[in-house]
Design a protein around this nucleic acid. Structure first.
Length: 943
RNA sequence: GCGCGUGUGGCGAAAUUGGUAGACGCGCCAGACUUAGGAUCUGGUGUUUUGCGACGUGUAGGUUCGAGUCCUAUCACGCGCACCA
């Protein structure tokens, strides 16, 4: 009987679907295990072979855990809101909901063919109103919360309001946009509008006028992680800086917790490091500098408080409001001209052009320690968004300050003994302090001379806090997330505006459904696309959506026109899978308590500073308000590598229609041309298919080697234009899903990026065919017997069980596949036909190749699915050797082998080796210094 | 510039705490069965040497009885952050 994979795979996929084999429910009698893949954005191009890599890896893990008795949640869904569908809608008028639906159906069809054990009853789509109900709900909770720095968690804004009205802001230690000082009397006398405006300063979800990354081509703002090298991540359009009023999420309040949490989760070091980088914690000090002949004081941030004696100038960011106040009349023109010039430069231009620019304000600051007068400059190398937007410049020990000082001829004063600053600054935080202070300030109270840099920093910090010159401060690079998008295809904000002040719509009125619009473009007045929606106003009294035309009625107000960004829907979807149909809560307490958090999360590393930060923040917030039981959403994370394309080339002799095979091509003047990889097999071109591929090749001539046309190849990104896209469907059709699954795992470590290369796929397919063949004789008769297996057969089996049991949890799938091949080779050599052996082989193989294993399981007479089998335990007894071969080496060289009984003692081995004739030859009368016996491996005689 | 990671046959890759480097697969070579084979099966396959052997994990050192693995330096490639004070 031939291995008819197409028939077998369709049969079992149908049975799994009909019987809901992979449907899970909460079950207290079993331990839970939650496996999750980053859900895909359903693009129009469909899946290519790279996409399923992570899904297969986690599917294997899910099946393995299930066989080990766990109740496994392995859901799948779609990140359905996104720019491509909307761009397509703008071009074609096709509603994004329709395109998205079509793409999802295509994805589903492709996914189904690979045989995943997803529980499709739990499918979610971020664009479903039942789903975004809870995205909107969470947003309202964020709007109604503030971050208490003392309790280190989010609290209801009502608590803050109570404090403000009772004691004012003096005892409030909360994350805020800027420090606000208000007494209880002042607060209580404020109007409702003024109070609401002030509260924005503390809310977790808040409106703020900020500099944003504006992408004119896309007509929307983008988050920092959506901008790469100054252009948009999607589309590659230029991005400029623009000031706009936007919804923001106070992610920065959670910076320390996001950092600390990394120590408690099982992610790769490199990914944690990337996040630490992005969060960018730096410990330092804030210091106040007074301006000479003025009562103006300003604050700078530095991590090098020890270099205070080397400050020879100060720099303000061009955007700093201090610039105007510090500019003297003489310098006014020069400064304004400079500000004009920098404003015109985009972020990208500033990044490319790093020429030193700057202008003197005319003011002098006073060094708080020495009293020295220091000129204050303006330069765009200082960023307004980090620290205080002002720095003390120490050219001797900071390369940027150094470049500035050299350019403008400012003094460079070295502070480290023996450092040479004639060519470049000495940035390292090491060495012994000198010139701190220089002789002319020798009578000042602080003296750092002779201290190490580390001690000097500590001493300066305590000096400035004791003398109230500043304070110790921790700064983060992590910024608040900008949460508004001027787009149609996203979650609407559940917000309406009364007197220009935003209010959330009542929770019982959620979801606020995305309205229909005539056009997906901005309106003539520059409003976002939702400005076109007619039914888009809120009736406060009747609690319902009404037409915009009725806004002048006293209880009817305009609704927010922005929509939420892509990461809104993907930030808590793992919670929703636990209880996807719940219409009373995001997730029920029971489901949340049972499933807790994701045990294993699999996805690409490209989300390191986007989704994986946002969802950790989002989950921490939900944890604070009692919705999510765990603080960290993803306990273990595995990054699957990217699968690159492997392009093939043909070589056309210039000005002809003749193509020459790879190894002969160097003899001709040729042009390499991409050729569709689907008409190339093992780098051999299918000539007929090539002639049929394009009309201009119909009459192509070929110069062959060994009667074959060999193509060249290169590793490139998988894309349509390189003709190297391999569709999983074509592989499934040709080899079957089981072969595809096995081969993707066999290709190399899951975490590693690698080119897709079908050259080895036959090996995996051959393995499955061989396994199938073991069950039948030449006449297709089933030949397995119930006889007792031999010792060798059991040994081979248990080696396999041991290897798979240990390697699957370690994600070492490529070696696991090898282990199956080794085991099968051994069983073939032993001519094994024992049912009890193959039963267990098939169970261990079933996570990798579920369809064939189900079929063989059935053929062996089982009437339950193999998913309900039990993972076999290995027995060390079978693995024990009677005798062990030792390699005898002399000074680590010249070896031969001796066999000993497995239970021989070291003393026995030693005496036997020393008495051995062969050994005598090597020892040759030389004195023996020692004999080293490595258990089960080696005896090394040191002479 | 700073941080992280990776370098092993013709190719994808294995290698427990330092313990016979190259498992397994591809490819290649030879043989068997075949009218035929891009089918199947068997054997071989790091380099060098007729052979014994010698040499081999980017390069150069070091520690060790013994190093792909540990240490130092260096080169190459990949990734992340990047006027973050």
């Amino acid at each position: 009987m031939a291995y008819n994979f197409n028939e077998i795979e369709q049969k079992w996929q149908r049975i799994w679907k009909e019987n809901k084999t992979y449907h899970v429910t909460e079950d207290d009698s079993k331990e839970k295990y939650y496996v999750l893949n980053m859900f895909p954005y359903p693009s129009g191009a469909g899946l290519h072979v790279g996409h399923p890599l992570g899904y297969i890896a986690s599917d294997i893990f899910a099946r393995f855990k299930r066989l080990n008795g766990y109740n496994v949640l392995n859901p799948m869904g779609y990140d359905a809101y996104g720019l491509p569908a909307e761009q397509y809608a703008i071009q074609t008028g096709q509603h994004p909901a329709i395109t998205t639906e079509q793409n999802i159906n295509r994805y589903r069809e492709q996914l189904d063919k690979i045989g995943f054990c997803f529980d499709w009853d739990r499918e979610i789509r971020t664009c479903d109103a039942n789903y975004y109900h809870w995205t909107q709900w969470t947003f309202i909770q964020m709007f109604n919360s503030y971050y208490d720095n003392d309790k280190k968690c989010s609290r209801p804004i009502s608590e803050l309001i109570e404090k403000l009205s009772n004691e004012g802001s003096k005892n409030i230690n909360a994350a805020c946009t800027k420090e606000i000082d208000v007494t209880a009397e002042e607060w209580n006398s404020l109007s409702e509008v003024a109070k609401q405006e002030l509260l924005m300063n503390w809310r977790i979800a808040f409106l703020n006028e900020t500099m944003v990354n504006w992408c004119p081509e896309l007509g929307t703002v983008l988050a920092n992680d959506e901008v790469v090298d100054g252009v948009s991540e999607r589309g590659g359009f230029p991005v400029i800086q623009k000031k706009m009023k936007q919804w923001c999420l106070r992610v920065s309040a959670y910076a320390q917790r996001l950092l600390d949490g990394l120590d408690r989760i099982d992610w790769t070091d490199s990914l944690k490091e990337t996040q630490r980088n992005w969060i960018g914690r730096s410990e330092g000090a804030e210091m106040q500098f007074r301006i000479k002949d003025s009562d103006i004081e300003f604050t700078i941030f530095t991590t090098r408080a020890d270099t205070i004696f080397g400050v020879t100038f100060m720099v303000l960011a061009p955007e700093s409001e201090l610039v105007a106040r510090l500019t003297t009349t003489e310098q006014k023109n020069a400064v304004e001209e400079y500000l004009d010039r920098t404003k015109k430069r985009t972020e990208r231009e500033r990044m490319i052009d790093r020429n030193v620019t700057g202008v003197f304000t005319g003011s002098y600051a006073i060094n708080p320690i020495t009293g020295e007068e220091i000129p204050v400059w303006v330069s765009d190398y200082v960023l307004s968004g980090y620290g205080t937007g002002a720095i003390m410049a120490v050219p001797a020990h900071d390369s940027r300050d150094y470049a500035f000082a050299k350019h403008f001829g400012i003094e460079i004063r070295p502070l480290i003994e023996g450092c040479d600053v004639s060519e470049e600054s000495f940035d390292a935080k090491e060495g012994i302090m000198t010139n701190s202070p220089v002789a002319k300030f020798a009578d000042c109270k602080l003296n750092l001379n002779g201290l190490t840099v580390k001690d000097a920093i500590a001493k300066t910090k305590s000096y400035i806090s004791e003398n109230k010159l500043g304070r110790v401060k921790v700064n983060f690079r992590l910024r608040d997330a900008i949460f508004s998008r001027q787009r149609y295809w996203g979650e609407p904000f559940p917000i309406y505006y009364k007197d220009g002040v935003p209010y959330p719509i009542p929770e019982e009125c959620l979801p606020l459904q995305l309205p229909e619009v005539e056009k997906f473009l901005p309106t003539e007045t520059g409003e976002p696309p939702l400005g076109h929606a007619k039914m888009w106003a809120w009736d406060e009294q009747n609690k319902c959506i009404v037409s915009k035309d009725t806004v002048d009625n006293k209880s009817i107000f305009p609704l927010e026109l922005n929509t939420m960004p892509g990461f809104a829907g993907s930030s808590a979807y793992y919670l929703r899978y636990m209880d996807p149909k719940n219409d009373k809560a995001l997730v029920s307490t029971e489901a949340d308590n049972y499933w807790q958090n994701v045990d294993l999360y699999v996805g690409g590393t490209e989300h390191a500073t986007g989704h994986l930060i946002y969802s950790r923040f989002w989950n921490m917030f939900l944890h604070d308000i009692g919705v999510s039981v765990k603080e960290e959403p993803f306990q273990k994370l595995v990054n699957q590598g990217m699968i690159q394309g492997r392009s093939n080339f043909v070589y056309r002799i210039k000005d002809t229609n003749t193509f020459v095979s790879l190894n002969l091509s160097k003899n001709y003047d040729v042009t390499p041309l991409h050729v569709d990889v689907n008409i190339v097999s093992n780098d051999i071109l299918d000539i007929d298919a090539f002639r049929a591929w394009r009309p201009e090749y119909a009459n192509a001539e070929f110069i062959l080697e060994n009667d074959k046309y060999i193509c060249g190849w290169a590793v490139e990104k998988m894309s349509k234009s390189m003709f190297n896209v391999v569709n999983p469907d074509t592989i499934v059709e040709k080899y079957g899903a089981d072969t595809l699954r096995l081969y993707e795992m066999f290709l190399g470590p899951v975490e590693q990026s690698k080119p897709w290369d079908t050259n080895g796929i036959d090996g995996c397919h051959r393995f499955l065919r061989k396994l199938w063949g073991m069950f039948f004789d030449k006449n297709d008769n089933y030949i397995l017997t119930d006889e007792e297996p031999t010792k060798e057969e059991l040994k081979s089996l248990h080696k396999l069980i041991k290897k798979t049991t240990e390697d699957i949890p370690a994600f070492s799938y490529n070696t696991t596949v090898s282990a199956f091949m080794i085991c099968l080779n051994e069983l073939t050599a032993l001519k094994c036909n024992k049912k009890s052996i193959f039963e267990q082989v098939v169970v261990t193989l079933s996570p990798f190749a579920p369809h064939i294993c189900e079929e063989l399981w059935e053929i062996m007479g089982h009437n339950t699915t193999i998913c309900d089998a039990e993972w076999p335990l290995f027995n060390e007894e079978y693995l024990k050797e009677d005798t062990i071969k030792y390699t005898i080496s002399f000074n680590g060289k010249a070896r031969f082998n001796l066999e000993f009984a497995a239970d021989a003692t070291n003393a026995e081995i030693e005496s036997t080796v020393l008495a051995d004739e062969n050994s005598q030859k090597y020892i040759d009368g030389k004195p023996i210094k020692k004999v080293i016996i490595v258990p089960k491996k080696i005896v090394n005689v040191v002479i």
